[in-house]
Design a protein around this nucleic acid. Structure first.
Length: 402
DNA sequence: AGTCCACAGGAAGGGCAGGCGA
DNA sequence: TCGCCTGCCCTTCCTGTGGACT
């Protein structure tokens, strides 16, 4: 058989038969389901707060808090979709914009966020070059062009404030004083509750005129959500309640993260599909779990700058020598060695210290500040990755370094 | 009680690339 | 082309620190 025909066979069976999935998209985080189980209360709260829009009044600003995958974005999007439907029918001048503040290179600086806001109004600003005040000015002008209500949903607002401070929020919460025609309402969504305490008190009080808290889902609630989605996504009889329960339980351990639960069940389905299985089994869920972690780490490492990869290589070298108590100084010595062998200019220890902190933040390594009295203060670095993954990383991403 | 280690991590600023308007 | 602005990466300089040792 030629390659062409055998490939043809694969695509033919793959394209025509879908024994596992009925509609996989329903497991995507982009999908907005009709029901939002266990979030009825929050849904109603958000809807009531935003309802004045229908009478062309300005609603209160809202601050929404809850861990990742607790349904915040889903609820807001669901209310907004509904609202927009009614608004469009009634010809009410309302614009609602959703911005994720954690998008690297898109919304992670004051300038870029403003540029993004401006582009929402259909105008473009250059990626860089203009003074920030100029971008502000353009935003004001666009905003105040006509009589209208504008709602700005700022998702992952804590990430933004951690990076650039609360200056921009101060400006946005004060903006209504300067606007003549437009009324601006802010909806801030955060994963981190303590974040609100670090804000300027004036920003805090105006941003959280209304506060809504999303508690994490427990395993039972996750199971309800997952069952509903699984019924949409999978063909009948493909997935048992036991498998759904397993995904829910695993995700419940991760602070009740529904996104994680959906990812798990989707990947498990894909694995089952690839293995030509007629059903999704528990073993597929186990495989999905390790695949999710592995993929995440590989992806992060791959997109790290060279220097950061070299630092990680130095850590791995020390780790493989059986050193369970790796410290910054050791890593730095190994790092400079690797740099010398590879003709790279080594960075300073200060910078390497930051890179180590970054790797820790990504969860690739575990670094803890440790005082050893007489013997100084340092970070104790641990590598908690499976051996197979370490080998995989060394064979692919770190291969280019000696 | 005081010393001192081996860093942590904050602050300031240099240098670069990309981009603007004049 | 020039002067100015931005973000980003990095260095330099600095102060802070928990606890073993004296």
């Amino acid at each position: 058989m030629t390659i062409q025909t055998s490939l043809g066979d694969i695509f033919k069976t793959y394209g025509s038969e879908r024994p596992i999935f009925k509609e996989k998209e329903t497991l995507s985080i982009k999908f907005t389901p009709e029901n939002t189980p266990h979030r009825e209360k929050q849904l109603k709260q958000v809807a009531l707060i935003l309802a004045p829009l229908l009478r062309n009044d300005k609603p209160s600003n809202i601050f929404i808090y809850g861990k990742t995958g607790s349904g915040k974005t889903l609820v807001v999007r669901s209310v907004v979709d509904n609202l927009l439907g009614t608004i469009n029918k009634g010809n009410i001048p309302v614009k609602i914009f959703y911005i994720n503040c954690k998008m690297k290179k898109i919304t992670d600086t004051e300038y870029r966020l403003l540029a993004q806001l401006v582009s929402n109004f259909g105008e473009e600003v250059p990626y860089t070059g203009l003074p920030t005040s100029e971008v502000y000015k353009r935003f004001y002008e666009l905003l105040d062009k006509e009589n209208q209500n504008v709602v700005l949903v700022l998702d992952e607002i804590d990430a933004l404030v951690k990076k650039i401070g609360d200056g921009i929020l101060y400006n946005l919460t004060r903006i209504n004083q300067d606007l003549e025609k437009t009324k601006l309402t802010l909806i801030g969504i955060s994963n981190d509750l303590s974040f609100i305490d670090e804000l300027d008190p004036r920003v805090r009080s105006s941003l959280s005129e209304e506060e809504i808290i999303f508690p994490p889902y427990n395993a039972n609630e996750l199971r309800d959500i997952l069952t509903e989605r699984a019924n949409l996504a999978f063909n009948p009889g493909v997935i048992s309640s036991k498998v759904v329960a397993k995904c829910s339980a695993l995700a419940a351990q991760e602070h009740g993260d529904a996104r994680r639960a959906l990812d798990l069940i989707r990947i498990a389905g894909e694995i089952a599909e690839r293995k030509d299985s007629k059903k999704v089994e528990e073993i597929h869920v186990d495989m999905a779990e390790s695949k999710l972690d592995t993929d995440r780490i590989l992806e992060i490492l791959r997109t790290q700058p060279k220097q950061s990869q070299v630092v990680f290589k130095a850590i791995l070298q020390s780790h493989k020598k059986g050193n369970t108590n790796i410290q910054t100084g050791d890593v730095y010595d190994l790092y400079t060695n690797i740099c010398a062998k590879n003709n790279l200019n080594p960075l300073t220890q200060r910078r390497v210290s930051d890179l180590i902190a970054e790797l820790d933040m990504f969860g690739i390594i575990n670094a803890k500040v440790l005082s050893k009295g007489r013997y100084g203060r340092t970070k104790r670095i641990k590598v908690n990755l499976p051996k197979s993954l370490v080998e995989n990383i060394e064979g692919s991403i770190l291969r280019e370094f000696y």
